[in-house]
Design a protein around this nucleic acid. Structure first.
Lengths: 341, 341
DNA sequence: ATTGGCACTCGTTTGTCACAAGTGCCAAAA
DNA sequence: TTTTGGCACTTGTGACAAACGAGTGCCAAT
């Protein structure tokens, strides 16, 4: 693309992002540094429209950038503010550091994303699924209850409260615990299920109900946890271009069903170094052509990882939002190191 | 109130709940069983308006019930369908029974409330706060990590991953664990903090960092968990009378900040036997005069309890919604018995 | 006490008109 | 060859008026 065109496209996008109004040739002639007349600008605009970067809502309105236009802007024309990065880093270092658990940290990150960008913040937690049992312990709690503590690879911990078999002393329970630990240690979940079934059949340990409780756990080990944290949805509806009931419905549907969002979020892979942007119809979310999504990958130790970012209006301050999302992802990755769960 | 008036008020409310439109005297004369002319009906309506049960949007519209009108209807005129109750009970018995954890059960209850009533379902979990340590166990996991399992009154379980002190064998750890268990058992959290501080100062156990980890836990023991589960918000925006951007904003604000909702939900006490209804301006939610809230209390064993119900349009099918909420609360209470976690 | 009739009110819809904003194109200028 | 001024044309917007419909209040008659 010629430099003149780039210059004008950039100016149109900037103005549009700022005002939300279609931009006309007269206004542009005044603001665009180049000393060109409206008529010349019109020629360039017509050409840009032919190439698909601009679009006229109707004859007597100005031009609005298309998704391609915004894409070109984000990829090639936009300048991110370097001071911005540092400021965001400072804020996040302050606000995220005192959260102690992984869960709280991520929730807070989501809140910060929403606060800083005035969009909805999303954090997807890719829970490492419980694949192997590394440790199993039975703790007698009372006359009727036993607590099973099960530790997986990567130190995931799961608790199950089981009925205590009758007439079994603490010492006996401890022996059973040791036995089970030996039996199930370093087994995959499938193997755990198999061995428990065998054990239940043979019934050597005389604790059938307890084993059945464990088996039930092994069949559905992961708590149906909310893996997608969303903050600040309401800010979306403040934006006039999203404040239509139709859009609101689509957004709420996306947030509640989560399927579509998860699909999108999973597209952001490790090797996408840095931030990935989906502008308007570039993502597959239905009825959300007015929405953009900015995502980045984060990774902590012990296979803890996921994707975070924001969902906002297509008319979004990309030069601000991109570094914020990028920074947050890096910061979260760094901070996950010391967090427990 | 005279029977004639009640009859007509009931008919107006029913029609209004059905259609959402102001109801006029002609339509009412046709539908109302009594063989009265529109003019007579108008007299009664004028009287009901004077008493505050009805309201005219403007001169040439029909009448719409006020909050008091709906209140009178709910308290005195409405007939709940008995078959309804049984049907709901059957559905819930089927759909809720296979959830295994408390968390999953409550989430599912919220979903069911939303599905059955076409409103937003809410479940508030009044987490019994971790007040006393009943059991503490340290499990060596690897060369560098120790898992602390802390059990409270009412069998709440908390896990903390701590750094393992160096040069401490498993056997030594077990001794330490036993010692700590003896030291902290049956202590309130404040007491736990005090004793840990003393222990850290004296440093008899030579495991300062481990104790500090525990102390940090005791200072912020409860995971900042989402205590308010909300489902099916989007259904609210399908209702035409809530499908205005202003209402949407208020609703989203209420759902996100939760403060207002929690305040409301806390008003429903045990002794309110059955369901409590807040119609329009009866609740203090700002900008939500078009919204009603129906809540009921549930209680499980071991101090597990809370409030559940629905948030929906003021124009809600109360005769359907009330029994649904009531049933759900009872069913959840009953089912919490066997659930773990 | 009830009812038919009638004047009155008020929101909604439809149509017309003028206006503003911005374009495309062409011929003249640089 | 590129740029520019001018002009005709298109189209959304807002204001205003008229017609319409739904429903009320009131009064006199039953």
């Amino acid at each position: 693309m010629k430099e003149r065109q780039e210059r004008i496209l950039g100016e149109i996008v900037s103005l549009y992002l700022e005002t939300g109004q279609p931009v006309g040739s007269r206004l542009l002639a005044e603001r665009c540094g180049l000393g060109l007349s409206p008529a010349s600008i019109r020629n360039v605009m017509a050409e840009l429209e032919r190439q698909g970067y601009l679009h006229s809502p109707h004859t007597s309105a100005g031009r609005v950038p298309t998704d391609s236009g915004l894409r070109y802007f984000v990829d090639a024309l936009m300048v991110v503010d370097a001071d911005m990065r540092r400021a965001v880093e400072r804020i996040l270092a302050r606000d995220l550091s005192d959260e102690t658990s992984k869960r709280a940290l991520l929730r807070r990150a989501s809140d910060e994303l929403a606060r800083l960008t005035h969009c909805a913040g999303v954090v997807w937690v890719q829970e490492p699924h419980f694949s192997k049992v590394r440790r199993l312990e039975l703790l007698p709690l009372s006359a009727s209850k036993v607590l099973a503590v099960i530790v997986g690879e990567g130190n995931q911990v799961q608790n199950r409260l089981l009925d205590r078999p009758e007439h079994v002393t603490d010492a006996q329970l401890e022996r059973i615990s040791r036995r089970l630990n030996a039996l199930l240690c370093d087994c995959s979940l499938a193997e755990v299920r198999r061995r428990l079934r065998a054990e239940i059949l043979s019934d050597r340990l005389r604790v059938r109900r307890l084993l059945e409780g464990l088996k039930r756990w092994s069949e559905a080990p992961t708590e149906e946890d909310d893996h997608l944290l969303v903050s600040g949805q309401r800010q979306l509806f403040e934006r006039p271009e999203l404040a239509m009931i139709e859009t609101v419905r689509s957004l709420m549907a996306a947030f509640e069903e989560k399927e579509q969002l998860l699909e999108l979020v999973r597209q952001v892979e490790r090797h996408d170094n840095g931030v990935k942007v989906f502008i308007g119809s570039e993502h597959a979310l239905v009825n959300m052509e007015q929405v953009s999504v900015v995502l980045s990958r984060y990774e902590g130790p012990e296979r803890v990882c996921g994707t975070l970012g924001v969902i906002g209006p297509r008319r979004m301050h990309y030069a601000r939002v991109l570094p914020i999302v990028d920074c947050t992802a890096r910061m979260v990755s760094r901070m996950l190191g010391g967090k427990i769960d």
